[in-house]
Computed example of a mutant assay.
Amino acid sequence: MRAMELLRTLDGEAYTWLTAPERPPRHWSRSHFNITLKCPILLNNLCESFNFWIMSARYKPIISMMEEIRVKLMRRIQMRRDLMMRWERAICPRPLAKLETSKKQVGDCIAIMYGGPKFQVDTATGGQFIVDLDERTC
């Protein structure tokens, strides 16, 4: 028995709702989705990592898939929250490491007030930069 015929016998209202003209199958049925790539640069590390992470859910029906992804995300958020609750500093570890690296790099720079929110920054190598804090430009 085909899936839609089975649905009609199980729940006539659901069958009627899904087969309404304003609700074509391409909007709700995986068999009717257009799977051609819309962007040639679709794969990157983030996409590949996420797709691998949800691999077990990808082939389930849409509601089950979304529920599994939701639960995985909730667990991940809770795990991260638990890790951060043990952290005793005001800044998270990775941004803190970047800040420390930046502090070492600017150790040889001298900032001189240029007027208002602007500063002239002189470097040890002889470079000069005008930094505008309002415009966030350099």
Score class of each variant (00 low, 15 high):
Met1Arg: 12
Arg2Pro: 00
Met4His: 04
Glu5Ile: 01
Thr9Gly: 10
Thr9Lys: 03
Thr9Asn: 06
Leu10Glu: 02
Leu10His: 04
Asp11His: 15
Gly12Gln: 13
Ala14Ile: 08
Trp17Leu: 15
Thr19Asp: 05
Pro21Glu: 15
Glu22Ser: 13
Glu22Ile: 06
Glu22Pro: 01
Glu22Cys: 06
Pro24Lys: 04
Pro25Arg: 14
Pro25Leu: 02
Arg26His: 06
Arg26Cys: 05
Arg26Asp: 03
His27Pro: 00
His27Thr: 01
His27Val: 04
His27Leu: 03
Ser29Pro: 01
Arg30Asn: 05
Arg30Pro: 00
Arg30Trp: 09
His32Ser: 09
Asn34Phe: 01
Ile35Gln: 10
Thr36Glu: 14
Thr36Lys: 13
Thr36Phe: 07
Thr36Asp: 11
Leu37Ser: 12
Leu37Lys: 12
Lys38Tyr: 08
Cys39Val: 10
Ile41Arg: 14
Leu43His: 12
Leu43Trp: 08
Asn44Val: 06
Asn45Gln: 12
Leu46Cys: 11
Leu46Glu: 14
Leu46His: 04
Cys47Ser: 15
Cys47Trp: 10
Glu48Ser: 06
Glu48Asp: 11
Glu48Lys: 11
Glu48Val: 11
Ser49Cys: 09
Asn51Asp: 14
Phe52Pro: 02
Ile54Asp: 03
Met55Pro: 00
Met55Tyr: 01
Ser56Glu: 14
Ser56Asn: 11
Ala57Arg: 05
Arg58Thr: 05
Tyr59Trp: 08
Tyr59Thr: 11
Lys60Thr: 08
Ile62His: 02
Ile62Val: 10
Ile63Lys: 02
Ile63Phe: 09
Ile63Thr: 07
Ile63Tyr: 07
Ser64Lys: 01
Met65Ser: 02
Met65Tyr: 00
Met65Val: 01
Met66Leu: 09
Glu67Met: 12
Glu68Cys: 00
Ile69Pro: 00
Arg70Val: 04
Arg70Gly: 11
Lys72Ala: 12
Lys72Pro: 01
Lys72Gln: 11
Leu73Met: 06
Arg75Ala: 06
Arg75Leu: 13
Arg76Thr: 09
Gln78Cys: 10
Gln78Pro: 00
Arg80His: 08
Arg80Asp: 14
Leu83Val: 04
Met84Gly: 10
Met85Pro: 03
Met85Phe: 05
Met85Gln: 14
Arg86Lys: 15
Arg86Val: 02
Ala90Gln: 10
Cys92Leu: 15
Cys92Met: 14
Cys92Gln: 13
Pro93Gln: 03
Arg94Asp: 09
Pro95His: 04
Leu96Met: 14
Ala97Tyr: 07
Lys98His: 10
Leu99Tyr: 11
Thr101Ser: 10
Thr101Gln: 04
Ser102Asp: 04
Val106Phe: 05
Val106His: 04
Gly107Tyr: 02
Gly107Ser: 07
Ile110Pro: 04
Ile112Gly: 07
Met113Ala: 14
Tyr114Ile: 06
Tyr114Trp: 12
Gly115Lys: 04
Gly115Cys: 03
Gly116Ile: 05
Phe119Asn: 02
Phe119Gly: 02
Phe119Trp: 15
Phe119Val: 08
Gln120Ile: 15
Val121Trp: 01
Asp122Val: 03
Asp122Ala: 11
Ala124Cys: 00
Ala124Gln: 02
Thr125Glu: 05
Gly126Ala: 09
Gly126Glu: 03
Gly126His: 08
Gln128Val: 03
Phe129His: 15
Ile130Val: 15
Val131Gly: 00
Asp132Gly: 08
Asp132Gln: 09
Glu135Lys: 15
Arg136Ser: 13
Arg136Lys: 15
Arg136His: 07
Thr137Tyr: 06
